[in-house]
Simulated assay, not measured.
Amino acid sequence: MRNEKKLKYSCAIQYTLDLIGGKWKLIILWHLTHKEIMRYGEIKRSLTGITHKMLSQQLKDLEADGFIHRKEYPQIPPKVEYSLTDLGKSLLPVLQSMSNWGNEHMQ
């Protein structure tokens, strides 16, 4: 995780939102909680409306911050798999609570 981020915040929520905020990061993490390993194409198909560039950037950010692990296999065509790290898995209760709240209030 990028330690320099920890130093510029006095509010834990602001820090957390900087790491996982935005339109796509939480949704990517949520989809990764349902499957142990997902390939890039699977993630892309599960997200309606995301561009290739945005998905690539969000995955790079999540990897840099330690939430996901990226495993690349040296083959042709390239095979890349994504999975949650322990840090990413630690967000599961938060994501589940958000899902429950949404299900209750979406009606």
Rank of each mutant, 00 (worst) to 15 (best):
R2P: 00
E4G: 09
K5P: 03
L7I: 15
L7E: 05
Y9V: 14
S10T: 13
C11S: 14
C11M: 04
A12M: 09
A12G: 12
I13V: 11
Q14S: 14
Y15D: 07
T16D: 06
D18W: 10
L19V: 13
L19P: 02
L19A: 11
K23A: 10
W24N: 01
K25N: 14
K25E: 12
I28E: 04
L29I: 14
L29Y: 00
W30D: 00
W30M: 01
H31F: 12
H31C: 04
H31E: 15
L32D: 01
T33E: 02
Y40W: 09
Y40K: 14
I43H: 06
K44G: 03
L47W: 14
T48G: 08
T48K: 06
G49M: 08
G49D: 07
G49Y: 15
I50P: 07
H52V: 08
H52T: 07
K53L: 15
K53T: 08
M54H: 12
M54W: 08
M54A: 14
L55C: 11
L55E: 06
L55K: 14
S56H: 01
Q58I: 11
L59G: 00
L59H: 07
D61S: 00
E63N: 05
A64V: 06
D65G: 02
D65T: 04
G66L: 00
G66W: 05
G66T: 04
F67H: 11
F67M: 08
I68R: 00
I68Q: 03
R70E: 02
Y73N: 00
Q75S: 07
Q75N: 13
I76T: 09
I76F: 04
I76Q: 10
P77D: 05
P77R: 04
P78C: 08
K79L: 14
V80M: 10
E81H: 10
S83M: 12
L84V: 06
L84M: 10
D86I: 06
D86K: 09
L87A: 11
S90V: 04
S90I: 10
L91A: 13
L91N: 00
L92C: 10
L92T: 12
P93C: 11
P93K: 07
S97M: 15
M98Y: 07
N100F: 12
W101N: 02
W101L: 03
N103S: 05
E104W: 03
E104Y: 10
H105E: 09
M106G: 05
M106E: 06
Q107G: 09
Q107H: 13
